Simulated scan of single mutants.
Amino acid sequence: MGIFSRRGGAEPPPVTGPFRFTVTNVFVVPVRGVVFTGQVVSGAIRTGQRARLPLPTGPREATVAAIEVRRRKRGHAAEGEEAALYLDGVTAADLPRDLAAGGAVLDPGPLRGLEITGG
Rank of each mutant, 00 (worst) to 15 (best):
G17D: 15
V35E: 00
Y86A: 09
G43H: 04
P12T: 15
A104R: 14
P59W: 02
Y86V: 14
I45T: 06
A10Q: 15
G103A: 13
A100P: 04
V23P: 02
G119V: 04
P12H: 13
R7M: 07
N25D: 15
D94M: 06
T24P: 00
A84L: 04
G75E: 10
P56L: 14
L85A: 00
L95M: 08
G43A: 14
T22I: 10
R74Q: 10
R97N: 12
V64W: 00
T91V: 07
G113M: 11
E11F: 12
A93Y: 10
P14F: 11
A100G: 09
G58M: 06
T91G: 14
P14I: 11
P14R: 11
M1V: 15
A84S: 14
T47V: 04
A92K: 07
R74N: 06
V34C: 09
L111V: 03
L106W: 01
P110V: 09
M1L: 12
E11Y: 12
I3D: 12
A101N: 05
T117R: 14
L111M: 02
V105G: 08
R97C: 06
R50Y: 02
L87F: 09
F36A: 02
V34D: 11
A10N: 14
P59M: 05
G102D: 02
P30C: 07
R112W: 05
S5L: 13
R46V: 02
Q39C: 05
G17C: 08
L55F: 12
T37E: 08
F27Y: 15
F4S: 15
A104E: 13
R74Y: 07
L114R: 03
R7N: 13
D94Q: 11
G75L: 06
G38R: 02
G9F: 05
A83V: 02
R112D: 07
R70L: 09
G80Q: 03
T22S: 08
E11L: 12
E115P: 03
G118N: 07
T57P: 03
A84P: 02
N25M: 05
N25F: 10
V90P: 03
F4E: 05
R52H: 13
D88I: 01
V40K: 04
T57K: 11
G113H: 08
E61K: 11
G103S: 13
I67E: 04
P12C: 12
A92C: 05
R70N: 07
A92N: 09
P30W: 10
G119Y: 06
F19R: 00
V29Q: 06
L95G: 04
R74K: 01
E79F: 02
A62S: 11
A10K: 10
G119C: 04
L106S: 11
D94A: 14
V26F: 02
E79V: 10
L85F: 04
N25R: 12
I3A: 14
G118A: 09
P96F: 13
T22P: 02
R71P: 01
G102K: 10
V90D: 03
G43R: 00
G2L: 13
R112I: 06
V64R: 00
V40M: 05
R6L: 13
R20W: 14
G33T: 07
V28S: 06
L87R: 03
V15I: 15
G43E: 05
T16R: 12
G43W: 00
H76P: 01
V26S: 02
